[in-house]
Design a protein around this nucleic acid. Structure first.
Lengths: 196, 196
DNA sequence: TCGTTACTGACACGACTGTATCAGTAGTGC
DNA sequence: GCACTACTGATACAGTCGTGTCAGTAACGA
């Protein structure tokens, strides 16, 4: 629907993206951003409409990096898919992006309206869908299959949180590898017992 | 060192705590808080010194809830300790507290100085210590024992993130139960192989 | 040459921020 | 009665915020 963004817009968006990767997205304001990228608030408002318009564009820009990675995943089993995901999550080159992701996730948990709406929820379902695709078809649609994907995702996300805080890649990677192995190998498939 | 806080201070702190549980902590400002709790900015500044002083007091207040829970944990094995932790994490009564925790965690990943300094890192090590205490002593000090605690913590934290976003307690609980079982039962103890 | 489009930057406005100052009050101990 | 402490609330200040306005420029097609 919206015409493709102008070259100047994408250029300034990339510059602003670098800025928020380093400085956070939650409490950015137009004037510091404009100064950092060599522009002005008038230009930002002209290209993005408003502060919220800029924030939305930046969130979408960040998500584009995430989606590009998900698309590059090999078509293989759950274990190797999850391992590939951890390779991406634990890459130091992505640390600032994942910090930004965490910030956006936390923000979206509070503010239902606004640029963040549904960020957390849709991110969860997107990753779960990727993991489910790596499962055997017979399992994919069962409640326990969904739970297994949920456990894998939780392990990855939790380890990412740990890594972001401690920087301890060796410990978190060891935990993810052995944890993934345990979850994918030894998953206990209850016959639909009751879980609270 | 600081004299114990006055009765009025703790009274207003509790009121402000209720406010930030509902409204978030990152971008609170004195005037709205003061109005919400029936006070004034002058009083808040008198009792807490500054805005940062209030934020620090609120972060400590939130952490007090967390520490109180950790202290109430039964002295049992890793699996039952982790299960008890999940019981607390998944309790709807704690949802706002955990949302606030997530927000503080994300904030502390960016701003090294300020009220948030070390919040994330110390929270990780605190929970890891609790889990390690539930391990057999022989395992506790090995790299792989630490990795197992890390995996358990990651599973719990990740599932909490999922639950906060989706509200799907059945799926996340099922994932945590089976995931914990897999990690504690079937943990593969490599003989110090190399992990990246 | 003219009009159109994309973009730029300067300025002003009202709202909001944290902080400072300070007179005033209720309670307590002497 | 007097001093002292804890607390209250009003007011003011300088700074930053998002937004609105608007003249100006460079590129380009007709």
């Amino acid at each position: 629907m919206p015409a493709e963004p102008s070259a100047r817009r994408t250029e300034l968006l990339e510059a602003a993206y670098d800025y928020v990767l380093a400085n956070g997205l939650a409490d950015i304001s137009l004037r510091p951003v404009a100064e950092a990228i060599g522009s002005s608030t008038g230009v930002l408002r002209f290209l993005f409409g408003s502060r919220d318009g800029l924030v939305i564009a930046l969130v979408e820009r960040a998500r584009a990096d995430e989606l590009a990675m998900l698309d590059r995943l090999p078509d293989s089993g759950l274990l190797s898919t999850a391992t590939a995901l951890w390779g991406w999550l634990s890459d130091p080159a992505h640390r600032m992006l994942l910090r930004l992701w965490t910030e956006s996730y936390a923000t979206s948990l509070l503010a239902e309206p606004g640029p963040w709406a549904d960020f957390a929820r849709s991110s969860v379902s997107q990753w779960l869908a990727v993991l489910a695709k790596a499962q055997p078809a017979a399992v994919r649609r069962t409640a326990d299959g969904r739970a297994q994907c949920t456990a894998v995702l939780a392990l990855l996300r939790g380890a990412m949180l740990d890594l972001l805080a401690t920087g301890d890649r060796a410990r978190t990677t060891r935990a993810v590898y052995a944890g993934l192995k345990a979850i994918t190998d030894q998953w206990s498939w209850p016959n639909d017992e009751e879980f609270s």
